[in-house]
Write a protein that binds this DNA or RNA. Structure first.
Length: 269
DNA sequence: CGTGTGCCCTGACAGC
DNA sequence: TGCTGTCAGGGCACAC
């Protein structure tokens, strides 16, 4: 997936197709992503009118006038495609509205689709434990210092923890830590208040820039309009093992919690 | 409770 | 060309 900016871009891209529209048909093809789709998904959505599209963390929310909220997660490889035509391999769900056909496409099937009646912020289990949105005013250096107090896990792992801050993924954490010159391996509680005061705006900046760029992409991300790729990808460190950091150091790749971390050992301390 | 590990699934790519 | 190994934006179940 899609980290926060890609989901935000997806939601913004889907909105013109769906907001205010009646869902004329909802069809499931292979209704087993990470979890099985709700059995009554198609029945509850068909005929409903979409009121709003929104995002929480890396989840997109499609709300209807029946107070049903379809919550989708794109996992590692999910996307919505709007090219129309027939369902193809890895298309799991089809939503039709105002003559448009929207396919939820997810080859690796790490994504999910849930349906909640009533306020998802309090009723959807995954939402209840989420930390603040990183772009909100609730997410500041004071909050982060409190959240990280006493935590001995690496700062990188803490920033990927969705209960600490909601929506960051591997790429943007690597980027923000480089911008703030913090070693990803440093114990979270040992990152100084001064460093956190640099890190928080770095996180906001890298996310805002990616959203502004239309969501960054790797090879299998498509915009909701079906256009191939985006721009970005001009990461400072991500995917740049062996290349020069802006400080002149050499970027290295290490493995933390089984996932790649890219960092510059010269300036990140 | 906090922390670290491994796995879910499929496809792309590098190297032989 | 075809095989094998490695890697991929996430999240969760476990074990300690």
């Amino acid at each position: 997936m899609p980290e926060l900016p890609e989901v935000e871009t997806t939601v913004r891209g889907l909105a013109p197709f769906l907001e205010g529209q009646r869902l004329t048909a909802v069809t499931t093809f292979r209704p087993d992503l990470r979890r099985a789709f709700p059995a009554d998904l198609a029945q509850r959505l068909t005929g409903a009118t979409v009121t709003t599209l929104s995002r929480r963390a890396k989840y997109g929310v499609i709300s209807t006038d029946r107070d049903d909220h379809m919550i989708f997660h794109l996992g590692m490889s999910g996307r919505w495609r709007t090219e129309g035509g027939a369902a193809g391999k890895h298309d799991h769900l089809l939503i039709e509205a105002a003559g448009h056909r929207l396919f939820l496409h997810d080859p690796r099937r790490f994504g999910s689709v849930d349906l909640v009646r009533g306020d998802p912020l309090t009723l959807f289990p995954a939402f209840v434990t989420l930390g603040p949105e990183p772009l909100s005013d609730d997410f500041d250096a004071g909050y982060l210092a409190k959240a990280l107090a006493g935590r001995r896990a690496p700062i990188k792992a803490m920033l990927l923890d969705q209960t600490v801050v909601a929506g960051l993924g591997n790429i943007y954490v690597c980027e923000a830590l480089n911008m703030a010159r913090i070693a990803p391996t440093k114990a979270a509680a040992d990152v100084s208040k001064a460093k956190l005061a640099v890190l928080v705006p770095a996180i906001k900046d890298v996310l805002a820039a990616a959203i502004a760029a239309g969501g960054s992409t790797l090879r299998d991300f498509l915009s909701p309009d079906g256009d191939l790729g985006y721009f970005a990808k001009d990461w400072r460190v991500y995917g740049r093992e062996g290349e020069a950091c802006q400080c002149g150091g050499t970027i290295v790749r290490i493995v933390q919690s089984g996932r790649s971390t890219f960092a510059c050992p010269k300036c990140q301390r």
